[in-house]
């Protein structure tokens, strides 16, 4: 299968008054057509900046993509003139954002906001766009969609707004849908509904998905492959099953340890990753996880380890990866 997306050495920084924020530090990964890739990591690990960089939606200033290539269908998005980039946004790559409450324009109707993309990319006239919008809203599970086209975002609940965002994202049949923590702001039952919805739509429409979350539990049922990010680096990458069965990076092990498990049995304690997330301003040399790591060694504070293949499709960036061989996350 060919690669739909190939990210090579992507590096994005924010030039703020307090110094340079190294949000994404030269990460590389790929995505096959129709594949679902999960990106996990705690708050501030650079997940959003990563995907916003793909879309070239980083606010500039203060942000800047300082290096790297993003090959989408073989074409480097970073080199495209802006008007061609706009032809990709919304049409080829669509995005759903973290905050459903604020991601829709409060003064424009739901219908208008979905129609807008259809008119722009599909050249539909108002009538056709409106009909298609009603179909899309029905598809994402909004009851009485036709009657709700002229409603405004404030008349929708958070979960409904996120469905509208999904409808908007799907409207032009994108090859890639990026969902940036689409369920974090929603309550648990709605979360499950949205996850199921995307799963079902993927089956129906066959698009590739990048699903960002800091909840490893959500990823398990959805993604085929997972990337674990920390401090703007990819720490580990593996197929979902492999990652759950044989996590190798100490951070991943910690993350999985903080996940409740049904098979852990009575008395098993939940652990969490100790310490604080790193400050991305003045990031020290070496591995950003070193200050919080139980396995920290000599080299860890001096040089960032390379992301090395340790098994089929399983890559880890850790100097001390021998020590974690055969570890079970809940056995700490």
């Amino acid at each position: 299968m060919t690669n739909l997306l190939e990210v090579r050495g992507l590096k994005t920084q924010f030039f703020t008054q307090n110094g340079i924020v190294r949000a994404v530090n030269g990460i590389s990964y790929t995505l096959k057509e129709g594949e679902c890739l999960g990106i996990v990591g705690e708050s501030g690990s650079g997940k959003s900046v990563n995907v916003l960089s793909l879309m070239r939606l980083i606010p500039t200033p203060p942000g800047k993509i300082v290096g790297g290539e993003v090959l989408f269908k073989g074409e480097d998005l970073m080199l495209l003139p802006m008007d061609e980039m706009r032809r990709i946004r919304g049409a080829e790559i669509a995005m759903i954002f973290q905050e459903p409450m604020t991601s829709l324009n409060p003064v424009l109707t739901i219908g208008f906001q979905v129609e807008e993309a259809l008119k722009l990319h599909k050249g539909m006239d108002s009538k056709a766009a409106r009909e298609r919008t009603a179909e899309l809203l029905t598809l994402v599970g909004i009851p009485n969609a036709i009657e709700r086209l002229d409603d405004y975002p404030h008349q929708f609940s958070g979960g409904m707004r996120q469905r509208v965002m999904i409808a908007m994202g799907l409207s032009c049949d994108p090859a890639l849908l990026i969902a940036d923590e689409p369920t974090t702001a929603l309550d648990v039952t709605i979360q499950a509904q949205i996850v199921d919805l995307v799963k079902e739509l993927r089956k129906k429409l066959g698009m590739a998905v990048i699903w960002i979350t800091h909840d490893l539990g959500v990823i398990a049922g959805l993604a085929e492959r997972v990337i674990v990010m920390y401090g703007g680096y990819i720490m580990e990458e593996a197929l979902v099953k492999e990652l759950y069965a044989r996590p190798r990076h100490p951070y991943t092990i910690g993350l999985l340890g903080s996940l409740p498990r049904l098979d852990a049995g009575e008395g098993a304690k939940l652990t969490s990753v100790r310490g604080q997330p790193p400050n991305l301003v003045n990031l020290p040399d070496g591995c950003p996880f070193a200050p919080r790591c139980d396995f920290v060694g000599e080299r860890c504070t001096q040089k960032m380890p390379p992301l090395e293949e340790i098994g089929p499709g399983h890559r880890v960036a850790c100097w001390e990866k021998e020590k974690t061989e055969g570890m079970k996350p809940h056995a700490r």
Partner: peptide, 23 residues
């Protein structure tokens, strides 16, 4: 211009002119 819905409008592929005037 720093609101989330402006980012949404840009993510849709709208031109800066339309993002400004309409959104």
């Amino acid at each position: 211009i720093h609101e989330d819905y402006i980012r949404t409008a840009r993510a849709k592929g709208l031109s800066e002119r339309i993002v400004t005037t309409r959104h």
